[in-house]
Amino acid sequence: MTAREQTEAYEDIPGTWVFDAQRARQGYHLNEFLYSLMKAANRAAFLANEAEYTRRFAMTEAQRTAVLRRDWNKLLELGGVSYALAKLAFTDGKSYQYMASRMTGMTEKEYVEMMLHGGRSPDGWRSRAERQGRA
């Protein structure tokens, strides 16, 4: 499979933004911002004035807005990687599981319940066609 075919195949997986080289390139400054939240002093500075802190990083306006809105799926689409996004969730005092639940549109309680019952079945989620009931 060529790199281009690989990307097309990634795009066919529903509900997923694969963090490939192009998306990583777009997300570089966003992810460096998220990485900075590993330090307690930076977490405090961000929470004290979120908009001002994000201006230290050369991210796009769309990425900045998505950060301020905690628009998790938009952040994935714009090149954020989930492990880095988790640092934003931790800064808010939230868990990984909370962040994942927001991405799915469920409440955290509903999400935990789904996991306790064996998680989400891959059936119907392997391709766009399968998602639309065509495969």
């Binding site: 933004w17 799915t104 064996g118 989400r120 079945s121």
Partner: peptide, 17 residues
């Protein structure tokens, strides 16, 4: 093993796999 922790498909588990 199987897991997905991003996007609307998060929570995917495939025990047979």
């Amino acid at each position: 093993m199987s897991h997905q922790i991003q996007g609307p498909r998060a929570g995917l588990i495939n025990t047979p796999f």
